[in-house]
Design a binder for these strands. Structure first.
Lengths: 275, 275
DNA sequence: GATCTTGTTCGGTATCACCAAACGGGGTTA
DNA sequence: TAACCCCGTTTGGTGATACCGAACAAGATC
């Protein structure tokens, strides 16, 4: 799985050349390793030994960390003795809800997202900007059985996603260049834009027509269409998008759905007091 | 605010008589204190000094913890110098989504919850059992401007909520007694049931008609109606509910909405393979 | 421009986080 | 049924480090 986490692959991208142990609480870092390991443990969870080996620490250390997290509700356990397994606890559900609600954007946008999904028959998502990356904070699953791009809270590349390009298209060229300089233009799908001038041209087109298109630029076989949401000051606070399988969407349908997404984004914008 | 967190008020309820420092990683516990403090910091966040004083540690310790969390995406900061403030980061959005998705129930139930909210015009929620408590893992906000019972991931009292009573009503009397013995019957709203026999009688009625009613038992002026969801083995895996203001719901409307909620719960149950 | 408040930095020490090894119990196999 | 094995749990010692107090610096406020 790619991009497993908040700060996923950008360890190679972010300038972390400086001494990384400055003001670092080692034991906390280890505990966070445990949390991340459990996040990938899925529904059935991980055993103590599995946790210890995946994060590279002793069994007893992992045990203490798990016990501490357990007492605080940050992990849950089921089974006993040799069958005992640990998984993330519901405290994270609470905190995650707090975080995604904190922007205020989510409360306003989600009802319209539901309507958009119902009208378009497609999975729709709401994202915000996070240091140049796009991060989804809301999602309404469409009627299809396949779940595409299901994750919340994960950093996604701005140049390879409709939701990211929609937000970039509201910025000036130099701002875009600054962001791209720090993130780069890594290839993700068959059609990823890997050239800054091509990207800027695409962003200009997106700004003109009001929506951005990701045509297999992030994932093969998947297309997305996104539009930006502005606040009352006219600055971009996020974007919404719909996702479909390539063969589901005919070429002429893209424009139709694009204007639909644009219309809902505008509605949310005006609801926020934006112009 | 009551029940601020995962393990909220039950510090007085849970038998924590044993030595609490067994297998406790103190520094991790402190870091979790910081996280909880930030959770209550809201959108604008907390300054380093505020964090330090609320959790009772030195400024420099709080600073180190915040820096460590910051580098991992667990907190975000904005501003610089004396105006710098910290709030929870988007990693929690990712982890919270992971947790609420882990049950599998959520993926199945959410589309129906959306439909229920649209049909009933009320905020609806999805909850699971967590050691006797009810914990919401999904929510669809209704059209009303007021947000009632908005939190996810927070433990709610089983005997004082519709969603909790719906789940309790699927259990046998002795199972209910065991749960209530450990949790108690604390009063929450004007009509909270504080007597075990009254509760059992209410649960029997709920089981007969297929839905449970919370008539100002948790919060004054708020009524909820909930129904249980079963899996293929016939055991209760969760419940759904709708929430309304008391004056919005006439007495005769309760039965109508109750059967509606019951119908959607049954649909989810059959979708899960339950009978 | 003076002053106050607040974030950031630094060094020392008592604490404690970490590990290795031993223990015990449940599941599995013969 | 019994022996084995595996894995969660416990323990004690020690070297690393988490924590604090105090000093420094940089905006904000008046």
């Amino acid at each position: 799985m790619t991009f497993p986490f908040g700060h996923p692959d950008n360890r190679s991208v972010t300038p972390n050349s400086d001494n990384a142990d400055k003001y670092r609480v080692k034991s906390l870092d280890h505990a966070l390793d445990v949390v991340e390991a459990l996040a990938h443990g899925g529904r059935e969870g991980l055993a103590v030994t599995e946790v210890a080996t995946t994060v590279g620490m002793s069994k007893s250390s992992a045990y203490s960390i798990l016990q501490t997290l357990l007492r605080r509700g940050f992990v849950a356990s089921h089974g006993t003795g040799p069958t005992r397994r640990y998984r993330l606890g519901l405290s994270f559900a609470y905190l995650g809800d707090q975080v995604t609600s904190q922007t205020g954007l989510r409360e306003v946008a989600m009802p319209y997202l539901e309507e958009l999904t119902r009208v378009a028959g497609l999975t729709s998502r709401l994202a915000i900007f996070d240091e140049g990356y796009a991060v989804a904070i809301g999602r309404i699953d469409g009627p299809g059985t396949i779940r595409i791009a299901p994750f919340l809270g994960r950093r996604e590349l701005p140049h390879a996603t409709a939701i990211g390009k929609a937000m970039l298209s509201t910025l000036g060229d130099d701002e875009v260049r600054t962001i791209i300089e720090s993130i780069g233009l890594p290839a993700r799908g068959p059609n990823t834009i890997v050239d800054i001038d091509t990207l800027l041209h695409d962003l200009h087109r997106s700004a003109e027509r009001g929506y951005a298109v990701d045509d297999e630029e992030d994932t093969a076989g998947v297309v997305c269409i996104g539009a930006s949401v502005l606040d009352r000051t006219g600055t971009c606070v996020g974007a919404i998008s719909v996702t479909a399988l390539k063969h589901e969407m005919r070429a002429d349908a893209a424009a139709e759905i694009g204007t639909l997404v644009r219309r809902y984004a505008d509605t949310i914008t005006t609801e926020l007091g934006g112009r």
